[in-house]
Simulated assay, not measured.
Amino acid sequence: MTEYNARIQTETARLAALAEDLTVPVPTCPGWTIAELITHVGRLHRWAVHVLRGQVQERIWPRQVPSGLAEGESGDAAWLTAGAAELLETLRVTDPELAVWTWGPDKRASWWSRRMFFELVVHRVVAELALGIDPVIPAEVAIDGVEEYLHNLSYAAWVTRPLAELGVEGATIHLHANDGPGEWTITQGPGGKIEWAAGHAKGDVAAQGSAEDLLLMLYGRRSPAALTVHGDGDLLGRWLTTTAI
């Protein structure tokens, strides 16, 4: 957990530095500006703090947790930084094995550290894209991010419900990072659930690119057209549209 905590601090500083003009539109989050993006991330930090400090055991969502903002008010860089500092202090004093509610499969405090880190990475990239900055995610971070995404995906009910209606049960999607030791095969199971395994395999469709490309593609922030795709591209497109979180 300590490793992710240090990275949370770095990514928060990077995102805060991008929040000079809060009115800039964010094309990869239609309808949002930088202000909405900062507010979203800061709410997630305060949500995690609430869960960890209260040792919450039942489902609770960000909007149910006080943010310190007045109704209709947006966060700014200082508000984001303050919330991240509170999160980091909470993670520092919390037992990583503490049993708490999460929306993923791991019901331990350590889940929140990794999840909040990747929320920051993806939203920092989103802000950079909005500002015309070429984002950079180191390959080892992006590979970890792909596995974190796949690890949690079957537990996101807002994804599994529409996946169950997609009619692609049994389909396989292979992902291949060309800048690091990252290969994964996703198999669509019943009820919208997925199974995945690391390693080389043949899928109904395969997407190859940098680990950064693959991670951002999974999050709906990079088009499959930016990668090399073999096989059923329509399947990949429909699956990605349904699963982006």
Rank of each mutant, 00 (worst) to 15 (best):
A77V: 02
H174I: 05
S113I: 00
V93P: 06
G170C: 10
W101N: 05
W79V: 07
E97N: 12
T90R: 04
V100K: 06
T172P: 08
G68S: 07
E71Q: 12
Y149F: 12
R114E: 07
D76H: 06
R161L: 12
R114Q: 11
W112Y: 11
A164I: 03
L88H: 05
L88M: 15
G104D: 03
M116T: 05
A84S: 15
R124T: 15
G68M: 05
A99C: 06
E148S: 09
A82I: 00
D95A: 14
D144L: 06
G170H: 05
H174S: 14
L175G: 13
R108T: 07
P138E: 15
V168W: 03
I143N: 11
A78D: 14
E71F: 04
W101E: 04
A139C: 11
A164S: 15
E169R: 07
R114F: 00
L80R: 02
S113L: 01
E148F: 01
V146F: 03
A109L: 04
T81H: 06
V121A: 12
A99N: 09
W158S: 14
A84R: 00
A164C: 05
G145Q: 07
H176N: 15
E119M: 02
R161M: 11
E140S: 13
L91P: 03
G104C: 00
V146S: 10
A139Q: 12
L80H: 01
A99T: 09
E73Q: 14
I133F: 11
M116N: 14
A127G: 07
E128H: 08
P135W: 05
T172H: 08
F118E: 08
V136K: 14
L91D: 02
L98K: 14
E165P: 04
W79E: 06
I173L: 15
E73I: 03
A139I: 03
W158M: 10
A109S: 10
A139D: 11
G170Q: 06
R108Q: 14
T172W: 03
I173A: 14
G104N: 02
P162D: 08
V121Q: 11
P162Y: 04
V136W: 09
D134R: 14
G170E: 07
P105K: 05
V93A: 15
D76P: 01
A82P: 01
A85N: 08
A127H: 08
G68R: 05
S154F: 00
P138F: 04
A85G: 09
D95Y: 00
T81D: 12
I137R: 14
G75T: 00
G68F: 01
A70R: 12
E119Q: 09
L98M: 13
H151P: 01
W112P: 05
Y149A: 04
Y155F: 10
E73W: 01
R124D: 11
A77L: 02
E148C: 02
